[in-house]
Design a protein around this nucleic acid. Structure first.
Lengths: 303, 303
DNA sequence: GTCATGCCTAAGCAATGCTTATGGTGGAGG
DNA sequence: CCTCCACCATAAGCATTGCTTAGGCATGAC
């Protein structure tokens, strides 16, 4: 089997006209070149070089090899350069999957920084909610998934992240959302969740709802959910209209213009943990690693 | 430095979808593949593979490498095939330089056999007399030189063949050429060279002439050379016309229609040695080696 | 639950490849 | 004419590489 190393040496010999010159060009000793050529000739099955008294000439087979060597080594150099560009963040791709409130808050800053500091990289985004977005990650359809979980809630087995790299970004506190004219509105103290036991509830997305119910039951009541929608603006709109109360993550509220509602801190304090997920191997891909760092920074600025 | 071996393994992994499959395809064990990929990823500076629970996927860098690998390995295979063709006598070139009487006698048969048994090879011929043709060999302008020398004559230093491979082909006996009506013609016994001391002489090429003079002087006389020509038909023509006698190699006479002359064996018997010359390295080039064998065969059939 | 498949790691071993040291050869210059 | 220099080949020593076998662990199928 001919190896690239052989071709490099042969080309150097053809260029330099002697083993010694080739050795100097390659930064090794002359016997090393001599041995390489011997091995190459052995695997070629025919002499490649004619040792003239004055100069080193190529045989026909040697000329053929050198002729091919240029193309082969050029291809190899191109491949190395392309990989080096990816490794050096002069190129590379990061595909992110994120849930809406993450997309509107953490992602923009991280993306902007990435574009600015590493213009060669390509960042792309798809919107996806946690269970699906994690499947996408495992299926290879994205490189990083922004997801969240409730640390105090037992995780279903099928949603385990044991096989993933979990990079915590921030603890997103849950707050109560009540109509502005609600008796509890405006107070600076935290409100007991149980104080909302008799309210009508507006629930968010399915995951959030499950968590809401769990949370309330720990406090001794079952929330009466009359209205359900995944759309956060709709939730605040319904609350503002006095149709009920809700619990929303701060992150979700941040990008909402929530007229007519008041937010209240809850007791016990509950957080959802927002994390970035990736596959163990992908965590070492430079562009992915850098994007994770950018996301972490974006989260820190918001902590 | 990326080596061809790495690309072969990477491509096998990409094709097979797992290290084990690649190992089977490559005829080695799975840890070998695993180690190769580890080394390649290390030299690439970024992961190339994503170990999914079910299948092995490529990262972007891995895809880039595989994309280049096809071209690179194809080029390498083409190079190997071209060299193998030369090594296997399915291709290759032999450039022969020969003196006229060799060209007309030994070369045709050897060339014909070469063309027939190894149709892929190219044989070419240039006409050149020994001192020049040997220089051509050393200068790389031909691969084999047909030459001759007089073993009993001291060789001038500048015509030494010490640095060459000398393959003896045949001993070409020198014969006397006399007019058909000459008193010595027709006898079956060998003629003493001294018996021709008083004749007028027709000399051949410069080398032959030098040798003729030397030969005669050993026998006690200096030949009286009136006519000199390098052209063998001219020599026999002049002899036939009764203008003198000559000494010619049998090989030269063979392809001459020599009307009007008779040949006589000489005493002492003298030969010129016809040899094939090549450079030590070229002697191992298959096409050259085969051509030398063909020339030897052609000479044997004529011995 | 058990088995099969696939990957990783470790350890042993052979082969590769580089080095330094040495000898031989051909050409150039004193 | 002889010496010196540049170049190549070879040998021995040594570090590295690369392969193997053996064993362990995780995952998915029957």
């Amino acid at each position: 089997m001919i190896e690239a190393r052989h071709l490099r040496v042969l080309r150097a010999v053809a260029r330099g006209g002697s083993f010694s010159a080739a050795a100097r060009a390659l930064g090794c000793t002359q016997p090393a070149v001599s041995q390489q050529m011997k091995a190459l000739e052995a695997s070629a099955g025919t002499p490649l070089l004619v040792r003239g008294p004055r100069e080193m000439r190529l045989t026909q087979a040697g000329e053929a090899l050198v002729r091919h060597a240029d193309g082969i080594l050029a291809g190899l150099a191109a491949a190395e350069e392309e990989v080096a560009a990816i490794a050096g963040l002069r190129a590379g791709r990061v595909r992110l999957a994120s849930f809406p409130s993450g997309t509107s808050t953490l992602v923009p800053g991280a993306f902007a920084e990435m574009r600015e500091r590493h213009p060669g990289t390509e960042v792309s985004l798809v919107e996806a909610e946690p269970p699906d977005s994690v499947d996408m990650l495992r299926a290879g359809d994205c490189d990083i998934t922004l997801a969240f979980r409730y640390p105090d809630l037992p995780t279903p087995a099928e949603e385990s992240w044991d096989d993933l790299v979990v990079r915590p970004l921030l603890a997103d506190r849950l707050v109560g959302v009540v109509p502005r004219r609600h008796p509890l509105a405006g107070g600076s103290a935290a409100v007991d969740l149980a104080a909302l036991a008799e309210e009508r509830w507006i629930a968010g997305c399915p995951r959030c709802r499950r968590h809401l119910v769990e949370m309330c039951e720990r406090e001794g009541f079952t929330p009466r959910i009359d209205l359900a929608t995944d759309d956060y603006p709709a939730v605040t709109g319904l609350v503002a209209a006095g149709l009920g109360v809700a619990v929303l993550p701060r992150l979700a509220l941040e990008s909402l213009r929530s007229r007519g509602v008041a937010t209240v801190a809850l007791r016990p304090a509950v957080h959802r943990e927002v994390v970035a997920l990736t596959l163990p191997d992908l965590a070492h891909v430079p562009a992915v690693d850098m994007m994770l760092a950018r996301l972490t920074r974006a989260a820190l600025g918001r902590a």
